[in-house]
Simulated scan of single mutants.
Amino acid sequence: MPVALYRRIADDIRRRIAAGEWSPGQPLPSRAELAAAYHVHEQTMRLTYDLLRRTGVLEGEERKRVIVAHPPAVRTLTDLDAPWPYTCDVTDTRPQPATEELAERLGVPVRTMLQHEAVECLDPGGLSGMLANTWWQGRRRGHATFTAELETVRLTQEQAHALGLLVDTLAYRVARTRLDTHGTPVETSDLFLPMDRWRIRLKG
């Protein structure tokens, strides 16, 4: 089966980056400029750029200038309850009503108003390494243990924007619920981790 044109162009751009034509952090020419250079329609270059962003070769949001990505710092997640060791930015603290899923996780009625905090966790290079949304009822309390479920999801527009990725990019989603000494949920979180920047290691 013949390889799609945009994939062949993406392979050629990867080759040119590897050869040193563009260095990490350096912007690439615009889609229009490269479309003219490759003698293709600008839509073909849009597909090329989207593919290169999804695979971590380029960084930058849609309709904005893109740069050659620095190799991601791949981190190993072994302790889902450990504090983030680097910079964190709180981006949203608006209360939210409990959805059916949140109500089940926290053991409260649906539409109960929950305290909410969205936190963007940055790696040492300043890239967003994790997005965490946390919900709890009333006063925030300490916990004794936690449960967690891991799955892969496609990022929404808001999540993708926070992580500097494209909408529908696959990411790990960890649904973590913290429990008190009686096993009662005290808070629950959704942790979103870019798949190209993390590996998950479970401890027995």
Rank of each mutant, 00 (worst) to 15 (best):
residue 4 A to M: 08
residue 4 A to T: 02
residue 4 A to C: 00
residue 5 L to P: 01
residue 7 R to V: 15
residue 7 R to H: 15
residue 9 I to W: 05
residue 10 A to C: 03
residue 11 D to T: 12
residue 13 I to S: 05
residue 16 R to N: 05
residue 17 I to A: 02
residue 18 A to I: 00
residue 18 A to L: 00
residue 21 E to W: 03
residue 25 G to W: 04
residue 25 G to M: 09
residue 26 Q to N: 03
residue 28 L to Q: 07
residue 33 E to S: 09
residue 36 A to Q: 05
residue 39 H to E: 14
residue 41 H to Y: 06
residue 41 H to C: 02
residue 42 E to S: 10
residue 54 R to L: 07
residue 63 R to D: 06
residue 64 K to W: 11
residue 65 R to M: 04
residue 68 V to C: 08
residue 69 A to C: 04
residue 69 A to D: 03
residue 69 A to I: 12
residue 74 V to M: 02
residue 77 L to V: 07
residue 79 D to N: 08
residue 93 T to R: 06
residue 97 P to A: 13
residue 97 P to V: 01
residue 98 A to K: 04
residue 99 T to P: 00
residue 102 L to T: 11
residue 104 E to A: 13
residue 107 G to P: 04
residue 109 P to Q: 03
residue 111 R to V: 06
residue 112 T to A: 01
residue 113 M to N: 04
residue 115 Q to A: 10
residue 115 Q to M: 09
residue 117 E to C: 09
residue 122 L to C: 01
residue 124 P to A: 04
residue 125 G to D: 08
residue 126 G to A: 05
residue 130 M to D: 06
residue 130 M to G: 01
residue 131 L to F: 11
residue 133 N to T: 02
residue 135 W to V: 14
residue 136 W to I: 01
residue 137 Q to C: 11
residue 150 L to G: 01
residue 155 L to Y: 00
residue 155 L to F: 07
residue 156 T to W: 06
residue 159 Q to Y: 07
residue 160 A to P: 02
residue 162 A to E: 14
residue 165 L to V: 12
residue 166 L to F: 07
residue 166 L to H: 12
residue 167 V to F: 08
residue 167 V to G: 09
residue 168 D to G: 07
residue 172 Y to K: 08
residue 174 V to S: 13
residue 183 G to I: 12
residue 185 P to T: 06
residue 186 V to I: 10
residue 190 D to F: 14
residue 190 D to T: 13
residue 190 D to C: 06
residue 196 D to K: 13
residue 196 D to W: 13
residue 197 R to H: 14
residue 204 G to W: 00
